[in-house]
Amino acid sequence: MSNHLSVGTGGEKIAADWLEAHGFVVMERNWRSGKREIDIIATKENRLHFIEVKTRRSTAFGMPEVQVDPAKLRSILIAAEAFLEQHPQWRRIQFDVVSIRLRGSDLSIDYFEDV
């Protein structure tokens, strides 16, 4: 597996663990609709969260969350619509980003709600 994929997979595991520790119930990881993917689908307090996870080992090219641009958000929205077609009971939804920075043994997590 290439290094960037292992960093991404590790970041998604860290994010899922963090979310669960903060009261979320993770329903799906890497949910796909065609070519589109939602990293994590979770619930908390009767709200469905579609969560994009971005992980970086360095901030030399900016913070991880800056990679969630309008095109990425559109892709997540289209995938979320497909999920909601299969699960129409959800009325309260939200789109969030988890940003993870790994520097050696240091770990920083930022959670951006309702992006």
Results as ranks from 00 to 15, higher is better:
H49E: 01
S33A: 13
E81S: 06
I41T: 07
Q67D: 09
R32E: 09
E85P: 00
F61K: 15
E81H: 12
L84T: 11
R57F: 01
E81W: 01
I78K: 13
A82V: 06
A79I: 03
A71Q: 10
G34L: 05
F83Q: 06
T55F: 00
W31A: 04
R47P: 02
P64C: 05
S58H: 13
D39K: 03
R36P: 00
P64E: 05
I40N: 05
A60R: 10
P70E: 13
E65K: 11
L73W: 11
D69L: 02
D69G: 12
S33M: 03
E81F: 00
T59W: 01
V66K: 14
F83T: 10
Q89H: 10
I40V: 11
R74A: 13
Q89M: 08
W90E: 10
V68F: 08
R57N: 15
K72H: 09
R47I: 14
I76L: 12
D69W: 02
G34M: 06
K44N: 11
K44Y: 02
H49A: 06
V66W: 06
N30E: 14
I38T: 06
A80Q: 07
I51D: 03
L77W: 13
F50A: 03
L77Y: 14
P64K: 06
F83L: 09
E65N: 10
H49V: 02
K72L: 14
D39R: 06
L84Y: 02
W90K: 05
I41P: 06
E65A: 12
V68Q: 04
N30W: 01
Q89S: 12
E65L: 02
Q67C: 08
A60L: 14
V66M: 12
R36W: 00
V66T: 15
D39E: 03
W90I: 12
E81A: 10
G62D: 11
P88V: 07
I78C: 01
H49F: 14
M63W: 14
F83A: 06
I51L: 04
I78S: 10
S33Y: 13
G62M: 13
P64H: 09
E37R: 13
